[in-house]
């Protein structure tokens, strides 16, 4: 009997993990509190990216993740996808209650495309109506201290594309860089007229609070900083927001929003 009970529990837990759903607001007795928290959660998720990328991702995987998002009736800051899935994702969101911006990464993650290939890819994404992009800088130039090359590369893209996308963020591998290299790279990006910097690409390279603090301290009120990778908890997101970051890349965006909802409901007496 006991073993059967454990097995049933395990099965339920597995099903819960597979069919993960955002907090069910119909369980909140006070409708006013439910509405207020739902609106706050919507605002909260609107500062985070959400999506699915990678070499072996299939249409089926992407459809599943779009459905997961649609069940929340909320929109992230942008939905991250690959170029080839853009038409399908746009179609999938065509009947959705919220407007969802689409985000694609260029030369991800090591930035080894030549400048002309990066420009060509950006041109294609612009013509496809993709809203938001990040571009990995040439990391070999960054690690080798060729800051003029970094500036020239960023300048070419800023000049041609920055005003055409909601954000054009340059990705720097801060976690692999010394403080001096981070500062010199940011100086090159400053000279190039860059607005947004994505600090780390994710893909095992995660941001730290210190890296963001360093850039903020050295370039006060200069850059729109997008922390990325290694952001797994509500506390992480809240801390980056306190530091002034309003564009956060986390694979756990929905789970963190769920934790935010529970926290707020507890504070307001909704549960």
């Amino acid at each position: 009997m006991y073993i059967m009970h454990i097995l049933r529990k395990m099965k339920q837990e597995l099903k819960r993990k597979v069919d993960w759903n955002m907090f069910d607001f119909s369980t909140v007795k006070d409708q006013k509190i439910a509405d207020k928290v739902f609106q706050e959660a919507k605002d909260f998720l609107s500062l985070c990216h959400f999506g699915l990328q990678g070499i072996t991702r299939t249409e089926k995987d992407v459809i599943k993740i779009v459905e997961k998002l649609k069940a929340t009736k909320m929109a992230p800051l942008a939905f991250d996808t690959e170029m080839e899935f853009v038409p399908m994702v746009r179609e999938l969101f065509s009947d959705y209650c919220c407007d969802v911006k689409l985000h694609c990464a260029v030369s991800y993650p090591m930035g080894r495309l030549t400048l002309s290939s990066k420009m060509n890819t950006l041109e294609k994404l612009r013509s496809m109506g993709v809203d938001d992009v990040c571009v990995c800088l040439d990391w070999q130039a960054v690690f080798s201290g060729r800051y003029q090359d970094v500036e020239d590369e960023a300048y070419a893209m800023v000049n041609e594309f920055q005003s055409d996308f909601y954000r054009l963020a340059f990705v720097i591998p801060a976690t692999l860089m010394s403080d001096t290299k981070i500062i010199e790279t940011c100086r090159a990006l400053d000279n190039a007229g860059t607005v947004s910097i994505k600090v780390n690409p994710g893909a095992t390279l995660g941001v730290t609070f210190e890296e963001v603090a360093l850039i903020k301290r050295m370039f006060p009120n200069r850059f729109d900083i997008h922390p990325s990778g290694n952001i797994r908890t509500l506390a992480d997101v809240l801390r980056y927001r306190e530091m002034g970051c309003n564009n956060i890349h986390t694979a756990a965006a929905l789970e963190i929003t769920d934790a935010f909802i529970v926290k707020r409901l507890k504070e307001y007496g909704g549960i």
Partner: peptide, 18 residues
């Protein structure tokens, strides 16, 4: 490399421009 998720013409153009 590594994702390979660009359209065929983008990849071909990458070769041509190189």
């Amino acid at each position: 490399y590594p994702a390979g998720t660009a359209y065929p013409e983008i990849k071909a153009e990458e070769i041509r421009s190189f």
